[in-house]
Design a binder for these strands. Structure first.
Length: 909
RNA sequence: GCCGGGAUGGCGGAAUUGGUAGACGCGCCGGACUCAAAAUCCGGUGCUGGUAACAGUGUGAGGGUUCGAGUCCCUCUCCCGGCACCA
């Protein structure tokens, strides 16, 4: 390692001044283009990506956490010898810009761009190792142009198609509402009862990739198991059966079949009615001559489209008076309309088996429909549980009614005695023989509706021509530019009121035509940005050959809330782009381009305490934690809180996610201004492991700052010693002095390397909070060394010099500014990022004597220092003669002695 | 409602995956320094009893497996994330 200085006497500032050193360090990285990523290298590449932010105004703690975690990984890998790349950009389209426009009368574009400028400055002040030359902004035409280009390709392939779908309609504001904007069934601004309305929309055939999206999860070894499980369940592959119920000619009047899908064909003999959605053709037919039915169907239109609401609402239904025929036993089953059956999913109809489906059971009880048991516990099980009351009863639901393992069919005619699989196969075969059904594999996953009736989004590049139909905009006319000067009224899309936008000519026939005024779901932009980062400035395509070098992303970091939607859409888009040939020819296709993100880290939320006062009419007035003083008892337990401004008490609420509504957000900028970026970064890493929720604590921030200042003070006190040791040309090797350490020094040296070993292990498993702990332990060990009576200047100097060098490098990914500054100041080198990652001195870890614990019946009773290679017989003897063991044995012999080498001896009495 | 997580001192968390529960930090208590305060440094700190040695007890609740359970199994409670138009 070369030294940066020749003179032994080192001058540095006595006090830790984060503002000064952070500015200097950041300037150093800027000037040296330290984080400009090379598009080719001898080194292995490491593409580290944090989820890009929505430019909501200013940085919040969640951002700081996300980007600090990413930056720690980036800097660590850089020191480990990787060619690293960490880009940053803006997920700039979205609803909040339109809301801000309504509130402040600012066009969404202006609001968004000004937020981006503020947030970019804030991100830069954190000292992130970002290659800003790759910045993308999704609301700019040079970005969304390629989204439109890909749309036209997918449209031509049939991967995008049009169909009608339900949206939340606000009948007062005459506008489509997001699920978030529907509160208790009412529009958030108008307060009007929301209705479902069917409108035409474009859909992406994600279901066509369902099988691959499911199967490839198995390859994602670097993903958390819980995320993969959630995605598997979301895709929801099921094996079931299609069943056709022929129309009853007498009541329906026409020939036809009612199609349903079921995963429980074994219970088909127990079907006692069928239920259809309000929009189902049979429902429409029945309602034509029945005003009560028409009224019920109208009632089903009320409320929003969110699944959570559907699942929790009261189940209601009405009998249509129509009948269908059971395909196997020929019974006439009544057709009901039920509000929980949805037209958009499956066939819009279900067969109901009340005895073996909990929801059907409830419905049947409510409307006095017949309940017919067709499944019984099998014999083995019946014997086992003979004493239990396991007889079927229609009085109340029992869990086993719905289970399919260890069950046999009863009351099912020729199917009696069959188990689940046998009944499944036999009934499916019989249905197929009668042409009334067949086995089918189905997915829960639905096609992705991407049309939005909003202004601030990427225009859908389609032209509607009366003669030619939906025509994609030709390449040479792309991008379709979203006009940025508009007025937002909150009622309908501004684009639909701008003839200068929508009036156009058909690219095919040249006749007058109308441009599509819907924009795309903002999830589309975030589905491919990781690819665009690889090819900044590319004006010839979505990506260029640089994508082949950088993709896939090696490490993706972002919130757990994106576990399903965003991550599934991005995986889907990666496959779409691959199949479009964007990542190279098919023959060159490698396993690695099938999935976009090799490793995934899902970070937890940042939460903080809440405080409030009861205002008029019981309304809570939320008070920011920064304005509150907490009182504690003599043990430090909180007993009350007071508002600093008036000294009067406030109520302590729960600890919740930082949000504007609860006024419990802590502005990271205040922390950065007061303590510096290193303190903010260190605290946020130290306070919790990345995947857990993090509770914010101002006191904890102080602690982080104190630690960094102690490092600075230690460096200042020892600057000359380290400098002289490093620069003495007559110096013998480190190894020479390390052999000559005193026992105390050897302990300190070993402690440091034990901490380093733990830290290296923790870095690999992404548990950074304990890496921060390790840094604190190393500093403590070094400080102890200072108060020890030591023999010899050089042995002391080698421990300090070696130890402090480890500390600086281990800490540098977390607190990059102070470590870079001290690395230079103390003459270790110019650039700590170019220094090799510290290695553990394994030899230093070996001890001659180890401590074993002694247990009696698993309970700690004593400790013992023994030679590290003592044999079992010796250990057993030592344990038995241990005073507290002897006392408990009271002359009796031990039943058993368990020796766990290097750990413990357990004497069983 | 469904799917996925979580719960450990006054607080944030640790425990190398079945082997000393509470590392590290915050807070609190005591001490040093100071005319004093702040800052800093040193020591203590799960709970109960005891001057103490020590004993008992303790990882959301209840059961189980094991020589030994925060960790594995079963049942339950509460909290959080997602549920397809918040991003």
């Amino acid at each position: 390692m070369s030294t940066g200085r020749t003179n032994a006497e080192i001058k540095m500032h006595q006090d830790y001044k984060p503002k000064n050193i952070e500015a200097v360090a950041q300037q150093y990285w800027n000037e040296k283009l330290t984080f400009r990523a090379e598009d080719q290298s001898e080194k292995p590449k490491y593409y580290c990506l944090s989820m890009f932010p929505y430019p909501s105004g200013k940085l919040h703690m969640g951002h700081v956490r996300n980007y600090t975690i990413g930056d720690v990984l980036l800097r660590y890998h850089r020191m480990k010898g990787f060619n690293v790349m960490q880009p940053m950009g803006w997920d700039a389209f979205g609803l909040p810009a339109e809301n801000a426009a309504l509130a402040n009368n600012v066009p969404p574009a202006a609001w968004t761009y000004s937020n981006i400028d503020v947030m970019r400055t804030q991100l830069q002040s954190l000292g992130l190792g970002v290659d800003w030359s790759r910045e993308v902004t999704t609301c700019k035409p040079d970005y969304y142009r390629w989204e439109q280009w890909l749309f036209t390709r997918l449209f031509q392939k049939g991967m995008i198609y049009k169909k009608t779908s339900s949206v939340n309609w606000d009948p007062v504001d005459h506008t489509v509402l997001a699920n978030e904007q529907v509160i208790d069934g009412r529009g958030w601004r108008s307060g009007a009862l929301v209705e479902k309305r069917d409108i035409p929309m474009y859909f992406m055939r994600i279901t066509q990739y369902a099988e691959e999206l499911l199967a490839d999860l198995d390859q994602l070894e670097g993903w958390p198991e819980q995320v993969k499980t959630m995605q598997r369940n979301w895709i929801g592959k099921s094996h079931g059966c299609e069943v056709y119920f022929p129309y009853d000619a007498a009541s329906i009047g026409t020939a036809g079949v009612l199609k349903v899908y079921t995963t429980r064909p074994d219970t088909l003999m127990g079907a006692t009615y069928v239920a259809v959605a309000a929009e189902h053709p049979l429902a429409t037919q029945a309602a034509a001559s029945n005003p009560a039915l028409a009224e019920f169907i109208a009632e089903c239109k009320h409320g929003g489209t969110a699944e959570a609401d559907m699942a929790t609402m009261e189940k209601k239904g009405t009998n249509t008076g129509l009948f269908v025929t059971h395909p196997l036993n020929g019974e006439q089953l009544p057709v009901w309309i039920a509000n929980y059956v949805l037209m958009g999913y499956g066939e819009g109809a279900v067969m109901a088996v009340p005895a073996h489906d909990e929801r059907d059971f409830e419905f049947a009880k409510k409307y006095n429909l017949p309940i017919k048991q067709v499944i019984e516990r099998d014999e083995i099980d019946a014997i086992k549980t003979a004493s239990l009351d396991n007889k079927f009863t229609a009085d109340h639901w029992q869990e086993w009614y719905g289970e399919k393992e260890l069950r046999i069919c009863i009351n099912s005619g020729k199917y009696d005695g069959l188990n689940f699989q046998q009944a499944f196969d036999t009934i499916s075969a019989d249905l197929q023989a009668k042409d009334l059904g067949q086995k089918r594999t189905q997915f829960r996953l639905r096609d992705w509706g991407i049309s939005r009736q909003r202004y601030w989004g990427c225009p859908i590049p389609i032209i509607h021509c009366a003669l030619c139909g939906d025509v994609p905009v030709p390449d040479e006319q792309l991008p379709v530019i979203l006009p940025e000067q508009v007025t937002i009224t909150g009622a309908g899309s501004p684009l639909a009121k701008m003839p200068e936008f929508y009036e156009t000519t058909c690219p095919q026939c040249g006749g007058a035509a109308k441009r599509e005024t819907d924009t795309m779901d903002t999830f589309v932009e975030s589905s491919w940005y990781y690819a665009r980062y690889t090819s900044p400035g590319c004006s010839t395509g979505l990506v260029d050959e640089r994508a082949r070098y950088w993709l896939p992303v090696d490490q993706y970091v972002g919130g757990i809330e994106h576990a399903i939607l965003h991550l599934l859409y991005a995986r889907f888009f990666n496959k779409l782009m691959r199949d479009e040939g964007l990542f190279g020819e098919q023959t060159l296709r490698q396993k690695s381009v099938n999935e976009p993100f090799t490793n995934l880290l899902t970070q937890g939320m940042v939460i903080a305490p809440t405080f409030f006062r009861e205002g008029a009419a019981g309304k809570k007035l939320w008070i920011n934690p920064a304005e509150v003083d907490i009182e504690t008892d003599s043990r430090g337990r909180p007993v009350g809180a007071k508002l600093r401004a008036d000294g009067q008490p406030v109520v302590i609420g729960g600890t919740e996610k930082m949000s504007k509504s609860k006024n419990n957000g802590v502005d990271p900028q205040i922390i950065i201004d007061q303590y510096g970026a290193d303190t903010a970064r260190f605290f946020i890493i130290f306070a919790a492991p990345p995947e857990q929720t993090l509770e914010w604590s101002d006191a904890g921030v102080e602690g982080a700052f104190r630690f960094l200042r102690r490092i600075w003070n230690f460096a200042y006190s020892n600057k000359n010693e380290i400098g002289i040791y490093r620069n003495n040309s007559n110096q013998k090797s480190d190894e020479y002095y390390l052999k000559a350490l005193s026992n105390d020094q050897r302990d300190v040296y070993r402690e440091m390397h034990v901490a380093l070993k733990q830290a290296n292990f923790d870095l690999q498993r992404l548990q950074f909070n304990t890496v921060a702990s390790a840094c604190m332990k190393i500093l403590k060990a070094l400080e102890q060394q200072m108060v020890l009576v030591t023999s010899g200047m050089n042995t002391k100097a080698v421990v300090i010099t070696n130890g402090f060098s480890i500390l600086l490098r281990l800490l540098s990914p977390i607190a990059p500014h102070i470590t870079q500054t001290l690395w230079q100041e103390l003459g270790y080198g110019d650039d700590i990022l170019s220094a090799p990652w510290p290695e553990v001195d394994e030899a230093a870890l070996i001890q001659d004597e180890i401590e074993l614990i002694i247990q009696v019946n698993g309970k700690l009773r004593g400790k013992l220092r023994v030679a590290k290679d003592a044999d079992h017989a010796t250990l057993e003897q030592l344990a038995l003669t241990h005073p507290s063991v002897e006392k408990l044995l009271a002359g009796q012999a031990a039943k058993k002695i368990i020796v766990v080498p290097g750990r413990l001896i357990n004497v069983v009495i």
